[in-house]
Amino acid sequence: MKTLIIIPAYNEAKNLVPLLDRIRIACPDYDVVVINDCSTDNTLAICKKYRAHVIDLPVNLGIGGAVQAGYKYARYKHYDAAVQVDGDGQHNPEYIKLLVSELENGANICIGSRFISKEGFQSSLIRRLAIRYFSGLIQLFTGLYITDPTSGFRACDTKAISLFASDYPRDYPEPESIVSAARNKLSACEIPVVMNERKEGKSSITFVKSLYYMIKVSLAIVIASFSSRRHTEVDE
């Protein structure tokens, strides 16, 4: 499978080189593209120095817009699979091949979940409760049970690439995108992964934003579950 690894990065200068090194060891045969979401640090310079392919966005779009740029690139270049890996080092590249192998078994989307084996970084109690709540809400609206709907560690096949390239939520996209995938009759599965705590920098979701996050994502899940279906064209 011709596979693209999409790394959205906003001010991840310190985390990127170790991540790229580990990806090069874990999956040397996959292409990597870093999406520089208009970082204010030297993320771009570091990528160029590393000779990594960079989609350098001239305007900050937020995580959703950045990831979507990666899916658009994957669609342009006719990749068979695309794997999203956060630029902050939370996701371990050793699992990428496992995620992709699930696609070969017929899944359209495979999500890396930290709550199946319950190993590694498990996030705070409040966040776990919020995640459990989203998980329930998604099950209610789609019938799909996903243990870690906020995980941004996921592999997509051509159908999912095509869907996300044409339609991907803008901010806090992960739970909503699962619903939109289910709505478009794509199958999603999960495999257990071990995640790390963020090494450098802050998470994009601060305490102040969390209430807005809960309301916005809940609403987004409800709306996505009855929004109009896309006609995804899988071009040869």
């Binding site: 989609i55 350098d56 966005l57 817009g65 740029a69 658009k72 690139y73």
Partner: peptide, 18 residues
Amino acid sequence: RVKTLTQEIGIIKLELDK
């Protein structure tokens, strides 16, 4: 529209670099 344009510009810049 701005989002789409930004993404396309980013992709074109990468292709240009290559």
